[in-house]
C-alpha cells in the first residue's frame, strides 16, 4: 500500500541527549512524547539550518535566527521568502526550553512543537505548504536516514510534519546558555565585576540604596534574565488603549488592557541582539537605556515600574557595562548547535 522507501536496514538506537543545565538554573519540562535524543537533535539541527522548509529553498529558520547573534537576525523586522517583510523583530532562541508563558512576542503559541508549525506556512516567512515539505523530505535520502535514526520510522512515507516539529523542538531545547560573566559572578565563586559593572548591577536589581533604582530586574530577573510576563514598557505613544499599531498580547486575549503588552524577553546575550524591542525600534542599548530613563509614554496599562529614573550619564554607562556581562557564546562550540552544513 505504501510507495515509500524501506528504511529498516538503517540502525535505530536512540541515545538520550545529555543536556547540561547549569546548577543555578531552574529545571524545565520535556514533553513525555518528545524525549530529547542525540539523533533527534541531529535531525532538528539539519532542519533548522536547511532552506528545504521554504517555498523556494532560499530561507531557513537560521536565516532569521542566526547562532552568532543569539539566534536573532540583526534587523528591525525580519525578511522571509521573496523579500517579504514581517511586522516584528526576530526573537532570541536561547534558553527557549524555559518558555512557560507562551511563545512569540504576544504568546500566541503554547509549545515549541506548536510554534514550529507556523514559520513554514507563514506568508511572511517560509511561505511553504506542509504537504510539500513532507513530500520533499520523504524523497530526500539524507532525511530518510535522519528520520529513521531519530524516530525509528520504517518507511520514508512515515515522515510527517509532526515528527518534523518534534525534531526542531528537540534542537531548540538544547540551546542553553548560562555561562556569561553575569552567571559566573552571581552564582560562581571566583569571578568579579568591574566597578562600573557592579554599579550597573546594583541599579538593575535595586540593590544599593545609594544608587537610583532602575527596576530592570523586576521584569528581567535572574537567572534567566526574564520573567516572561506581558507588559507595556512604554515604548509606544498612543492616544488610548485601542490605538496601539501592534496590539501584541491584546491581539491574542482580546482584552483591551492587554493591548500594547509584549512578553518581556531575556536580556541574555542582549549585546548581540540589536536592534531592540518587538519592532526593532531601538538600534542600540544606549537608546534602550535612554528610553527607560525617560519613563516612557503614558497609557493606562503602562507598567508602574516604568517611570523616570533620573540616571546620570555615568550611571547610564554603568548600566550598559552591566548589560554587557550577560553575553555568553559558549554554545557556539557545541557541534549539535552550529550549522551542520558548514
Amino acid at each position: 500500500m505504501t510507495n515509500g522507501v524501506d528504511l529498516t536496514e538503517i540502525d535505530y538506537a536512540p541515545k538520550t541527549y545529555p543536556i547540561a543545565i547549569p546548577d543555578h538554573f531552574p529545571t524545565f519540562t520535556i514533553p513525555d512524547d518528545n524525549p530529547i535524543t542525540e539523533d533527534g537533535v541531529r535531525l532538528g539541527q539539519h532542519l533548522f539550518y536547511d532552506p528545504i522548509l521554504s517555498l523556494d529553498s532560499t530561507v531557513s529558520c537560521s536565516s532569521c535566527h542566526l547562532p552568532e547573534k543569539a539566534f536573532t537576525d540583526g534587523v528591525a523586522v525580519s525578511t522571509g521568502v521573496n523579500g517579504n517583510v514581517g511586522r516584528r523583530s526576530s526573537m532570541s532562541l536561547i534558553n527557549i526550553a524555559y518558555a512557560f508563558n507562551g511563545l512569540f512576542w504576544d504568546g500566541r503559541s503554547n509549545t515549541l512543537e506548536a510554534q514550529a508549525i507556523e514559520p513554514v506556512q507563514d506568508p511572511l516567512e517560509l511561505i511553504e505548504d506542509w504537504d510539500n515539505v513532507e513530500e520533499k523530505l520523504r524523497r530526500n535520502e539524507r532525511y530518510q536516514t535522519l528520520y529513521r535514526k531519530a524516530f525509528g520510522i520504517s518507511n520514508s512515507d512515515e515522515i510527517t510534519r509532526d515528527l518534523t516539529v518534534k525534531a526542531i523542538s528537540q534542537f531548540e531545547r538544547i540551546l542553553i546558555s548560562g555561562d556569561s560573566k553575569y552567571d559566573r559572578v552571581e552564582y560562581g565563586t571566583n569571578a568579579a565585576y568591574t566597578n562600573e559593572e557592579l554599579n550597573g548591577r546594583d541599579m538593575f536589581f535595586d540593590a544599593d540604596p545609594l544608587t537610583p533604582d532602575a527596576e530592570c530586574g523586576h521584569c528581567h530577573n535572574g537567572p534567566l534574565l526574564t520573567t516572561q510576563q506581558y507588559i507595556n514598557n512604554g515604548i509606544q505613544q498612543v492616544e488610548d488603549l485601542a490605538s496601539f499599531p501592534d496590539k501584541g498580547r491584546g491581539e491574542v486575549t482580546g482584552i483591551i488592557f492587554d493591548n500594547g503588552k509584549f512578553r518581556a524577553p531575556t536580556l541574555r546575550n542582549i549585546a548581540l541582539t540589536a536592534p531592540y524591542m518587538h519592532d526593532g525600534r531601538f538600534e542600540t542599548l544606549e537608546e534602550v537605556i535612554e528610553h527607560y530613563n525617560s519613563g516612557g509614554h503614558f497609557a493606562e496599562n503602562l507598567d508602574a515600574l516604568i517611570q523616570p529614573l533620573g540616571l546620570t550619564e555615568e550611571q547610564k554607562s554603568d548600566l550598559l557595562a552591566f548589560l554587557h556581562t550577560m553575553t555568553d557564546t559558549s554554545y557556539l562550540t557545541n557541534p549539535f548547535i552550529v550549522n551542520p552544513f558548514d
Partner: peptide, 8 residues
C-alpha cells in the same frame, strides 16, 4: 527560583 522547576 533556580532551585525549582520553571513552572513551580
Amino acid at each position: 527560583p533556580g532551585d525549582y522547576a520553571i513552572t513551580d
